[in-house]
Amino acid sequence: MSAPLFSVEGLAKRFGERVLFDGARLELEAGSGYVLTGANGTGKTTLLRIVAGLEPSEEGRLAFRAQASLVSDYPEAWRREVVYVHQQPYLFGTTIEKNLEYGLARRGVPRSEREARVREALAWAGLTERREVPPHKLSDGERQRAALARAKVLDPTLLLLDEPTANLDGDARKQVLELVTALCIENHTVVVASHDPEIIRLAILNRLCVADRRIEADD
């Protein structure tokens, strides 16, 4: 059996007296999709943030493409391949187009290629007509789609989505749901933390559950 794309071993995380994880482990296979469930406050968001290198923890070892690291010493190079999208994404105070270009520019992608990839991602998210609109003029659904497009344009090896359909309803939720499904199908390794029954029911996703300070497969 091949080594997992990303693994977490012996994870311990506490907030004051509250212990979220104690010796938790997680393995993510390349090209697989996962939905992470669990009651509120069990640590779904914290786990995604630890995997993204945004949250320190007391103990824990990570491995990405067989390269090992301590959680406390998250390698800078991994940030180019692991992208995290907040539950309520933050879009920089510029146009949607510039938001999508941001990560590509950080990766040194030439301008002409950047423009082409941004155009493609905007079309994917149905935001071509809104490309020059500043974020404060977008609806919640458009903001979420823009954030998904901003992550997708980077073609990340591992994509972490935190409650992408929370706070959305009606058409906005449906559109975001379609994009999340598309991302899972497109051979990305995706982890979606969600309470949304439609996401949890997606057949292409493996179910993981955070409970009792551990992460368990939830069949």
Partner: peptide, 23 residues
């Protein structure tokens, strides 16, 4: 989320700091 978003999109610390200051 500004700094975190910048970092998660691949910005090094100084660039993420500049992005935050720009915001």
């Amino acid at each position: 989320r500004v700094y975190e978003t910048a970092r998660s999109l691949g910005a090094q610390r100084p660039r993420a700091a500049l992005t935050t200051l720009w915001e």
